[in-house]
Design a binder for these strands. Sequence first.
DNA 1: CTGAAAGCGCTAACAT
DNA 2: ATGTTAGCGCTTTCAG
Lengths: 348, 348
Amino acid sequence: MVTMKQIAERTGVSVSTVSLVMNHRDEGRVKPAIAAHVRAVADELGYRVNPMASSLRTNRTHILGFISEEVATTPYAGGMILGAQSAASQYGYMLITVSTDGGMDEDEEIEALQRYGADGFLYAKMSNRVTEVPRRLNDCPLVLVDATDPDGLVPSVEPDEYRIAYDATRRLLDAGCGRIAYVGCSEGGMIAQQGRLAGYRAAIEDAGRKFNERLVVNVLNNGPALEAVSDLFDWERPDGFFCFNDARAWYVYECAARRGLTVGRDLSVVGVDNHRVFAETLSPQLTTVELPHFEMGYWAAAKLISLIEDRSLDESEWPSTTAPMPPLDAGIPAKIHCRLIEKESVVR
Amino acid sequence: MVTMKQIAERTGVSVSTVSLVMNHRDEGRVKPAIAAHVRAVADELGYRVNPMASSLRTNRTHILGFISEEVATTPYAGGMILGAQSAASQYGYMLITVSTDGGMDEDEEIEALQRYGADGFLYAKMSNRVTEVPRRLNDCPLVLVDATDPDGLVPSVEPDEYRIAYDATRRLLDAGCGRIAYVGCSEGGMIAQQGRLAGYRAAIEDAGRKFNERLVVNVLNNGPALEAVSDLFDWERPDGFFCFNDARAWYVYECAARRGLTVGRDLSVVGVDNHRVFAETLSPQLTTVELPHFEMGYWAAAKLISLIEDRSLDESEWPSTTAPMPPLDAGIPAKIHCRLIEKESVVR
DNA sequence: CTGAAAGCGCTAACAT
DNA sequence: ATGTTAGCGCTTTCAG
């Protein structure tokens, strides 16, 4: 490991000068020629700061803690993490991901992160729910990802469920579907459900059609759900389906198979892909909406860093739409709509 | 943050004494009464070591790097991470997970981990392949998880594919299946395929049956695969299927649905669940084999720590079988067979 | 403009 | 058995 001392020796200046140069605080304080020389030698020797050592003085580790209890079970958590990591490394931070498999160990893990001096935290869920924030995080810079806190005090990045549903439904309309059903979610606390239903309804009505309650079924992810979808099939004969998630799209798929119908020919399905079932298995047959996990992670981390560094962030560049949806049944996941929910933030 | 200095002041001893006590190096060096007092005060004040500070002297951060390029795409990566994390925290280590989405950034991320002083690395894949280890990791303590290095020099933890297949097939035999097919993998470099096929064959033959080549199809995960399985269905009429993974089990499922057959009644399927398709969607219908990701992560981390600390590890307690398989079609994922592949290790 | 010096929290020789 | 001292690599006054 090459240290500042070594650079100082090689260049004949003092460590403090090297420090100034390496931290880009040399403007008008170090003679440009010297600064250049120092930089050259540092490059040559392959100098890298020792974050541990500097954190001792500065109380900044450039470590971000990413806490999620669902990394273990949902594949798309990876996207969020990748996004957050990408922003982190862009700003010179390191992301420490901690998976807290349920409650007990969570507090301990957060404590460990704090011991290691994390400068701030990302607290993530895999589907937007009202989420109690662990007390231990109360006085740290904090951003929620795909989650909402009960008091509306913590900044968060969430998908724009309304627009997701609106566009998905619009897509089915464009594809010429006459009777479009919504297979929603009846589980409590799922923030997405309201927005999705509203978006679905708005798209239908904006197209000059009448909203038909009977084309909506809200189900849980279990046995009775299959029956509910089956009944929907027989009674309403929809030719287009917007599904809350892939588990629900699966019921549609199964019902179709049992009736000798082919998705993509006899009926169209657009669903939100939460568990990669679409991507891994059904993608050839279904059009999927992939939530912008990467973007959510990215912007959440960017926001967090701005909080930590007390900078402002140019939120105008944030994507409200990250990509247009692909043609129906093309099987290419679409990333759409990531909206930032800005809240009064708890600083440091 | 409470420091050793504060404890020293409160107890009227020197910092070095406190250090000795807090590191459990006080046996015979510090008077028991004093040690107890120090500990009491430390407890009271809620003292926690500052790992950054001690790492500066000791060159040990108690940080483990977990590197995987597939965390982003495979849900079960979470299990590995959880396992590794669990072992880490048990031994007083912190796990830093880094997802390297493909090649380029990988080297950078590893470099960052090394700057942060990681004591050792776990390098993981999500399905056992021959894997070139990044050069940068060459001189670090390193353990592979679900991966094999080309030269056989790096210690690794891998699933016992033979036993997995043997037991899965055995299960189908026990269920009374007469014609058991194997839907395997024709992709190159998949170490699991050989073991699985061998295990399948051995189970068949040990049951006094004749191995029938025509009941084996090895396919890729794509369109022609469905046709191949479809042909298998029509030509050989199997009543039991052992599937390489869930994507392949899906083909079986679809073929059955199209023929009006019900899995779990007209035919039995046991498959390895790589992508949670089973767990999330098909579990009511299929018996699944869930690879012991948690255990692999756990033991890999434990092994790594023993390497770092130059301790030996009691490998006799390692689980060769972690749980018996559940009754057929119960839909409960089974964790089976995790074998440690011990290699000549590259030390520190 | 540059350097000397102090100190972040902790560990480890070396004294006592 | 305990304290003194030096120093890990870096940042940051403060003098010059």
